[in-house]
Amino acid sequence: MIKLENVSKIYKGDVSALLEASADIQKGEFVFLVGPSGSGKSTFLRLLTREEVPTRGKIFVAGKDIGDLSKWKIPFLRRNIGSVFQDFKLLPNKDVAENVAFALEVIGRPKHVVKTQVPAILELVGLSDKAQNMPNELSGGEQQRVSIARAFVNRPLILLADEPTGNLDPATSVGIMKLLDRINRTGTTVVMATHDRGIVDTMRRRVIELDRGKIVRDQARGVYE
């Protein structure tokens, strides 16, 4: 599903965010990206959505080399990838249902699809009764559920999560991880960058550890360190 071949990303002034990284992630896998701040986790994720272009090496997503993807095809790559962030990135002037619907509307999905998919996904994330609430009326955990709903409503093949529990307390984090686990069980490949030792150690999934841009460990059913 995702394949990196000797990928390097070097920013101006010889700052290397990623160095000769190679990894092969199968469909349906759940992978943790761990490592200290600045080790290249976010760069790893941003390369997959083509927000960054690798300096060297090749990246394949769903069998396609995204390095030579022409500009106008990038949106179609992103429709196969859901993204979740630490800061949720919800639109404050839209309610929960509208925030989720927005993701379908702007890629031109017809109204009847929006009408059926939005309630279904809100049911999945357990927010059916908050559909009409505004984001500022929700707790952090609820807001993150909305953002996961938005990322997943289009049923992408891949879900990328950049520190999705970074702003949440441990109890709430467990709920979010259960949700990501459920999404993973539908066959969606999940790649999650995290600092949360507790989560990684309980879940026992594949762990890729980065240190100063290098992959220093790639372990099935791994722990944080």
Partner: peptide, 12 residues
């Protein structure tokens, strides 16, 4: 930002 994230086309 979100439009780009979820794959809205440039023209859209």
């Amino acid at each position: 930002e979100i439009m780009k994230l979820v794959g809205a086309t440039n023209s859209y």
